[in-house]
């Protein structure tokens, strides 16, 4: 029986301070573009939701005079195109958008932008809630490798990767700690 060599540890792209700084960059860029009022923030489950909340908190702290952004969540599970490939019972989280999206400006939030398929699904689901005037996209980490013509308007960190890499973002609300790491799939699985 051969013993596989120890897997090299994944590289840390962002530590806790780096995540905070990336969130700060997102907030600053959004504030620069939206000078009158905040768009509605819609986080994509799961990590897009705490991300949207944290960016909103930053903006509210810097602009106490303005009405804080409304926050909603999208669980795109029912809009994915790969249900047949799932081998365990899918766990739904549900979407919660308790404001009218018709005519609204919306920023979608997600932790990692990769193939773009999640965003495609999120846009499909959002359209079933109503017809927003405009939709922008904010991501903590853009890892490249798009399979659809989708781009982010606000990026916390751009770090090009290959499909052989895996990228993992952890946020303290969902995972107990703030980090973003990249590693190789073949070695670490």
């Amino acid at each position: 029986m051969s013993i596989s060599p120890p897997a090299p540890p994944p590289t840390i792209l962002l530590d806790a301070d780096g995540i905070e700084a990336a969130i700060g960059r997102l907030a600053a860029a959004i504030a620069q573009r939206h000078q009158a009022s905040w768009p509605a923030f819609i986080g994509i489950e799961r990590r897009g939701v705490p991300l949207a909340t944290r960016v909103a908190d930053r903006l509210a702290a810097v602009h106490p005079d303005r009405r804080p952004p409304q926050i909603g969540s999208l669980d795109i599970s029912l809009y994915r195109d790969d249900l047949a490939a799932l081998h365990t019972v899918p766990q739904l989280r549900g979407s919660a958008i308790d404001f009218d999206v018709d005519g609204a400006e919306v920023i979608l939030f997600d932790d990692v932008l990769y193939t773009g398929r999640t965003i495609r699904a999120a846009l499909d689901e959002l359209a079933d809630f109503g017809r927003p005037a405009r939709v922008e996209l904010a991501v903590l980490l853009d890892r490249g490798c798009r399979e659809l013509p989708i781009h982010a308007d606000y990026v916390g960190l751009a770090h090009p990767t290959s499909p052989r890499d895996y990228v993992r973002v952890r946020l303290r609300e969902t995972d107990g700690a703030d980090t973003a790491t990249v590693g190789h799939k073949e070695i670490t699985r």
């Binding site: 029912l78 809009y79 994915r80 809630f129």
Partner: peptide, 9 residues
């Protein structure tokens, strides 16, 4: 929801 249908299947 306004649209009660989802594209799951």
């Amino acid at each position: 929801r306004r649209v009660k249908k989802v594209p799951t299947l």
